[in-house]
């Protein structure tokens, strides 16, 4: 390689062979070392705490988000105290398979979620 200040001419454009500035070489090394360090030691993402505590009010969320769309608007009967009027099995069956105008919504939820809704209904008065 030509090291001196010789000039090449390519397409009528002169090209010098100046050395890479020292500051730039230093930057190259710093960036390279940082890159290796980052690759080895960093997670590559922001450490995020799990969003609040695990949800313990899932029954309430499902009840308010789904059931109340009808059962609070007058489109369907009020459900307060429903656990006193009907046995557990029947209530869960209505949720799963529907009754009269109420659609079946069993396929949308797991068995456990339906249990949680029932637990919530016990205190819904």
């Amino acid at each position: 390689m030509k090291k001196e200040h010789k000039e090449d001419i390519v397409s009528d454009i002169k090209i010098e062979h100046n050395k890479v500035p020292k500051l730039l070489v230093a930057v190259f090394y710093v960036v390279a070392i940082w890159a290796i360090g980052y690759a080895i030691f960093m997670p590559g993402k922001l450490a995020v705490e799990p969003a609040a505590a695990p949800q313990d009010n899932k029954g309430e969320i499902i009840f308010e988000g789904t059931c109340l769309n009808c059962h609070a608007t007058g489109a369907a009967p009020d459900l307060s105290g429903v656990t006193d009027r009907m046995p557990e099995e029947d209530i869960k069956n209505v949720i799963k398979k529907g009754r009269n105008t109420m659609p079946a919504i069993g396929h949308l939820y797991t068995e456990k979620e339906i249990d949680l809704v029932y637990e919530y209904l016990k205190d819904y008065r």
């Binding site: 000039e7 002169k14 010098e16 062979h17 100046n18 050395k19 890479v20």
Partner: peptide
């Protein structure tokens, strides 16, 4: 109208 500063930098 000036020459290009450095061939090496162009390569990098």
């Amino acid at each position: 109208g000036r020459p290009l500063y450095s061939h090496q930098l162009s390569m990098i």
